[in-house]
């Protein structure tokens, strides 16, 4: 894939990411894993987990990371990678730069427009569905022992891994109750899983 194609791919992803954060996961997964094979499902999931403990939003981090790989392929070396990273990042920002700047000038019109409201009334709940699908995407490779997708045709049996299930339940409980800083929760679960998977 050339740098231009990669740039355009991230322009497209930037244009269809609504609600930010977790909602972009199924979108990015479709393009980066299924369509363009930049990484495997597990690698993508690992990257998203890693991006949670680095500065910046996951979508931006993914654009920089994939851009870096693409730059290494096309130009070569760390320098080429850095250029690719900047190109990917600019790609995912391009729709925002155009749209938000325009909207900023017509803020009142935009806020009260009936069509905008109608479009969002459809997109908002769909975004929630996307985020819920992201839960499954992560659970498939950690909490469950087989992917839910095409389960009846793949012939695999569905089960729950006790280590994954335990961490899932612990994090759910702890965050629900005390709302701790996400970084600490993720670092603690990394340490915990190091020991659990040795048993």
């Amino acid at each position: 894939m050339t740098l231009l194609q990669m740039y355009l791919l991230f322009v497209k992803l930037g244009a269809f990411t609504f609600g930010g954060g977790y909602a972009m996961i199924p979108l990015f997964q479709t393009e980066l894993v299924n369509n363009y094979h930049f990484m495997t499902n597990a690698q993508f999931a690992n990257f998203v987990a890693l991006a949670q403990v680095t500065p910046g939003p996951v979508g931006l981090n993914a654009a920089t990371y994939v851009g870096y790989q693409c730059g290494v392929q096309n130009i070569g070396g760390m320098f080429g990678g850095a250029i690719g990273g900047v190109v990917g990042t600019l790609g995912v920002m391009t729709p925002s730069l155009i749209l938000v700047t325009l909207i900023a000038y017509f803020i009142q019109v935009f806020k009260e427009n009936a069509i905008v409201k109608a479009v969002l009334s459809g997109i908002r709940p769909a975004t929630l569905g996307l985020i819920a699908a992201a839960v499954i995407f992560f659970a498939e490779t950690s909490v469950f022992t087989a992917p839910l997708r095409n389960l009846w045709t793949s012939g695999q049996t569905f089960g729950i891994s006790w280590q994954g299930g335990l961490i899932f339940a612990l994090v759910l409980f702890v965050e629900w109750k005390w709302k701790l800083n996400l970084i600490y929760v993720l670092i603690a679960s990394a340490i915990l899983s190091y020991f659990l998977y040795q048993i």
């Binding site: 977790y22 949670q52 985020i131 992560f138 490779t141 899932f168 990394a190 899983s193």
Partner: peptide
């Protein structure tokens, strides 16, 4: 380690849902 962290991430996303 990543497998465990992915389990944690799925719990965090569920909470935001």
């Amino acid at each position: 380690i990543f497998t465990g962290v992915r389990a944690a991430v799925s719990a965090l996303i569920l909470l935001s849902v």
